[in-house]
Design a protein around this nucleic acid. Structure first.
Length: 444
RNA sequence: GUGAGUGUAGCUCAGUUGGCAGAGCACCGGGUUGUGGCCUCGGUGGUCGAGGGUUCAAGUCCCUUCACUCACCCCA
């Protein structure tokens, strides 16, 4: 039989890797809670039209990266379903569907979960990846824009990371029109020197010319959106920058932050790491004031961002990752029982219960359960092998204590309680064995 | 979609001008009839990514293909 492998661009996360992601996710949720955000859970699939009308049909994400889902028996062309490539459109849809735009427009959400995009995988880029995202509705004021950046900075501090913050303003619909014209004029004027990609961009998405890396010098000369801001947009952007300066978040204004999604207006931003390679964007977002309306709701401004969780964990140093993973895996344990189990990928346990012989088996199984009821993590070791192998398993599982019940113990009505770190062991009465284990665990 | 690099044991990798597929780690067992880690002795484990070609003989040379990795593009 041919071996079945995981799909290209998809990954399994085992042990420490999974622990790391859970840990980062927990930190992000904690920070979100402090910023008054409530959780929202939305479907993994939506109608394709949702993304066509929000993210934009010309964006790469919609044009060539979506997974279309087909039911085995039924399919309806009118309702083409796709796996979500990003979170924002779904959240906006849910917001409108719940009638919040009319009844209670100011809402603050966070979400967390997998996103799927069909792309060629590389370092930091996967077909399924996880995002932690934030969406705020009903706030048009610059303080809200600044606050989201500050929030990301808080998370950055919690995780002790060095990250670069870059912001830009695309302007509102009005100033974008003028900016777009200027870009097209620039493109036509330099038609010969533009790279092949930029020729295509000129047609599809002129904004992206600014972002060209093939000819950085030329891109440098291209018109910048911040030079085309109307007075209102200018004031808004300046206010955001002032607030950030006052908050002590070091940001750089980068006119090349144009974003690939159609719905962005005014403030856009990217947060990146210097240690990640080519795919260094860890978080990105921006304002989308017209989006709720264009998806059928009443006009409500909105702004949000998403963090790539895999990239965030990758940005942590290896030593840091290891230390954190071990700490997370160890649970409440100060240190693992042996040096060897230091490299363990799974959680450490408090006790391993070993049974020797048929007679001891039910007693041992019952004892394991009783110890668990006191809140400790217990593994009932397979009794199919000898004591030596069972003890080795106990060590491998990272157990602090081994509780042994064999012929000898049974005849005396006791269990042997062995401290796996010191090797010291003593008899405890079978009836009090569970209390003895939890008492021993409590003092070590 | 484009380009480059890499595919040998579960993992990390040796493998000479083509000549019997190896090491370390991991795993299992003995040394200890009921005592883990350290030590020691032994053992299990391979379609050499796949298919074809050249040759008396291919892990090694040639062609094709697949996968992985990195980069372009794009993005979290």
């Amino acid at each position: 039989m041919a071996k079945l492998t995981r799909l290209r661009g998809f990954q399994d996360q085992l042990g420490a890797e999974a622990e790391m992601l859970s840990l980062v996710e927990a930190r992000a949720k904690e920070v979100a809670r402090r910023y008054g955000l409530g959780e929202i859970r939305i479907p993994l699939m939506e109608r394709i039209q949702l993304y066509e009308r929000s993210t934009g049909e010309t964006s790469d994400v919609v044009a060539k990266q979506m997974y279309i889902v087909k039911h085995a028996q039924e399919s309806s062309a009118a309702d083409t379903m796709v796996l979500r490539p990003e979170g924002t459109p779904g959240v906006v849809r849910a917001y409108i569907e719940a009638g919040l735009d009319r009844s209670d427009p100011e809402q603050r959400f966070f979400y967390c979960g997998p996103m799927l995009r069909y792309e060629r995988p590389q370092k930091g880029r996967f077909r399924q990846f996880h995002q932690f995202g934030v969406e705020v509705f009903g706030r048009a004021d610059p303080a809200c824009d600044a606050e989201l950046l500050v929030m990301i900075d808080d998370l950055r501090r919690e995780l002790d990371l060095e990250l670069d913050f870059e912001v830009n303003s695309l302007g509102c619909g009005e100033c974008r029109l003028a900016f777009r014209e200027a870009l097209l004029a620039f493109g036509r004027a330099h038609l010969e020197s533009l790279c092949a990609d930029c020729h295509a961009r000129l047609e599809r998405n002129p904004l992206r010319i600014v972002d060209c890396k093939t000819d950085a010098a030329l891109a440098e000369q291209a018109p910048k959106s911040i030079d085309y801001l109307c007075p209102d947009c200018r004031r808004h952007f300046d206010a955001v920058l002032d607030l950030l300066r006052y908050s002590g978040v070091a940001v750089t204004v980068n006119p090349r932050i144009v974003r690939g999604l159609d719905y962005y207006v005014r403030t856009t931003f990217e947060v990146s790491s210097r240690t990640l390679g080519a795919q260094n964007a860890i978080a990105a977002g921006g304002r989308y004031d017209g989006l709720v309306e264009s998806l059928g709701g009443v006009p409500v401004p909105g702004i949000g961002f998403a963090i790539g969780l895999e990239r965030l964990t990758m940005a942590m140093s290896p030593q840091d990752r290891h230390a954190r993973a071990v700490a997370a895996a160890a649970g409440g344990h100060a240190k693992p029982p042996t040096a060897r189990s230091d490299s363990r990928q799974a959680p450490f346990i408090d006790a391993a219960v070993l049974a020797l012989g048929e007679e001891a088996l039910p007693k041992a199984a019952a004892l394991a359960r009783e110890i668990r009821h006191s809140g400790l993590a217990v593994e009932f070791v397979s009794p199919a092998r000898g004591l030596k192998a069972q003890l080795r398993r106990a060590d491998r599982a990272g157990a602090r204590f081994a509780v042994i019940i064999g012929e000898d113990e049974l005849s005396r009505g006791v269990a042997t309680l062995r401290d796996m770190t010191s090797g010291a062991q003593r008899d405890v009465q079978l009836e009090q064995a569970a209390q003895a284990v939890s008492a021993a665990a409590a003092e070590s």
